[in-house]
Design a protein around this nucleic acid. Structure first.
Lengths: 307, 307
DNA sequence: CTATACTCTTGTAAATACGCACAGAACACG
DNA sequence: CGTGTTCTGTGCGTATTTACAAGAGTATAG
């Protein structure tokens, strides 16, 4: 009963017309001129067409067609509807074509997110992708917070750490980021070489994220006394700056660290210091050609040595 | 089974998208952001909305929304649909407003038809109507053939003769058109006065319609020998011209005939010569304000004396 | 950290719309 | 002038769609 009341309420006060399918039916009737022809074109029965027209006319309170034995001829209102519905049909046809074709074409916006710490190692490869696919507008978002794919915030998230296991996410292994200990040559000259049996004699630079899920942090907590932690930086970039300024010893990705001028590598990359990097996409978007395109590019193009 | 085959056939080869109601549902979902909100706005159940979205996505072969616990967020395809559907909604709202308001307003085209023979007596009153209602574009169509209201050829037909009894037509008596015999004064001077007991001595001018349903034609056939029919004209205008040229005696409407210079009225108007004139409208259009407007005008404004 | 409120999802029964078949009427053709 | 075809209109049985209700998950408030 409440439903009944609500329904009449809507049909009375609704200014726009609901029942777009009925408009479509009336459109075909106005186009063809007969109920039978429209029914055949629509793939439905004549009776359905007649009922749609009757319902639409009742709701609009105005006759759309004049009935006679040869068929239905549109009144002024019917012709008006014909014009509007024709435009709508064209727009919907174009829309369907765009949406159906969108799966195959690689255009539009492509949003990739990662933590800022991964930015340096990804930018080169992403830039090459943007150059190879000028049709796409590449947006690379970096933030400390984790972007949520299920909210449509990005097409592709590049994450580090343990394998993400959120539902509806498609996860692929990207590469293993090896870390090693680095320090500036000025620091070594001043403090001496690194002795793993006397770590407390050195000064360490670490990142100070609330949840230090970096794998080498666990090693740090176990093997380096707190007194040796000389510098805590909230951002990864600050850590690098601190190391390069000679503030102490710190973990850096192996390859780019070894290329930075003035820095010396103090150890090999150990497996327990390595962090896995994952390519994460939402299941709804994973199948699209655009997402597949950048996934294929990254997996082929990315060279850890160039890091 | 054949129906099943036809249905898949259509959904495969149809380039435009059928199911406009589903597009409307998706539009509201994209607008509100949640299935529940869209369902409330549409006045349907949540489940219906979900099924519409699923069906639409299946038909388009592309995801329109990303589902998550907070609701539905539109993908690129969904946003594209949102834009198109918004335009459609606006257009349909305007259309509904136009159609609903059309019944009350007196604008647009107003088509009146009659036989050419009635043109002279109607033009003056019709012109006054057009002057009083500048919003309407008055089209006055005259042809020997009978315009068919059920085909939407005219809003109002003015017909003479016996009362029309076609179904779906609303018939009102307009006026009684009285006919009398006229001749040019030159003819009378040459042939002498009219003697009803010796009609064969005169020359008559008649109209030669295939079905001479004019009431005085029956009188002519009974009382005037064929030999006295000197002139047959297919068009009423030609009959007038012939009488004014002195070709013979003929029937003319009483009032205008008596006003034509050079013409003399040879008899009184007899009831058996009178023709009824009817206002005929289609039942679908009869109730509209526009049709009622001209009906009211004609019945009040028309002055048989001014004929 | 628990509770609450909101969301989507899925299965089942009712309601609605649909297709079918027949009737009625008008037009075209021979 | 009769016949055949094509169109609309309507009652009825079925099938699709819909609403209802229960379930599970997640964000927000206290």
């Amino acid at each position: 009963m409440l439903d009944r009341e609500q329904k009449t309420h809507r049909s009375n006060r609704m200014n726009g017309l609901d029942g777009w399918d009925e408009v479509r039916t009336a459109y075909h009737v106005a186009l063809v001129g007969t109920v039978s022809g429209a029914a055949e074109a629509l793939g439905v029965h004549h009776a359905t067409v007649i009922r749609h027209i009757d319902a639409l006319e009742a709701r609009l309170g105005s006759k759309l067609f004049q009935r006679h034995a040869r068929g239905y001829t549109a009144t002024e209102a019917g012709n008006d509807l014909l014009q509007v519905a024709k435009a709508t049909d064209d727009q919907f046809t174009q829309l369907a074509g765009r949406i159906k074709g969108r799966g195959e074409e690689v255009t539009g916006e492509l949003i990739v997110t990662s933590l800022p710490s991964l930015s340096a190692s990804l930018t080169a490869s992403l830039a090459r992708y943007g150059h190879a696919n000028p049709e796409v507008v590449l947006r690379f978002l970096t933030d400390e917070r984790v972007f949520r794919l299920e909210y449509g915030e990005a097409h592709l998230a590049i994450r580090a750490g343990k394998r993400p296991d959120e539902p509806d996410n498609v996860v692929q292994k990207f590469f293993e980021m090896e870390h090693a200990l680095f320090a500036h040559e000025d620091y070594i000259a001043r403090m001496g070489a690194l002795d793993f049996d006397n770590l407390g004699a050195h000064r360490f630079v670490v990142d100070d994220n609330r949840d230090s899920r970096a794998p080498y942090n666990a090693w740090l907590r176990q093997n380096v006394p707190d007194s040796a932690i000389a510098y805590r930086a909230s951002a990864q970039l600050s850590v690098i700056d601190a190391i390069r300024a000679g503030a102490g010893i710190g973990f850096l990705p192996k390859r780019p660290g070894s290329r930075m001028p003035g820095l010396v590598q103090l150890s090999d990359a150990r497996p327990e210091w390595a962090a896995s990097v994952w390519l994460v996409t939402h299941v709804d978007l994973h199948r699209t050609a655009k997402v597949q395109s950048i996934l294929k590019h990254l997996k082929e193009d990315y060279d850890p040595g160039a890091f």
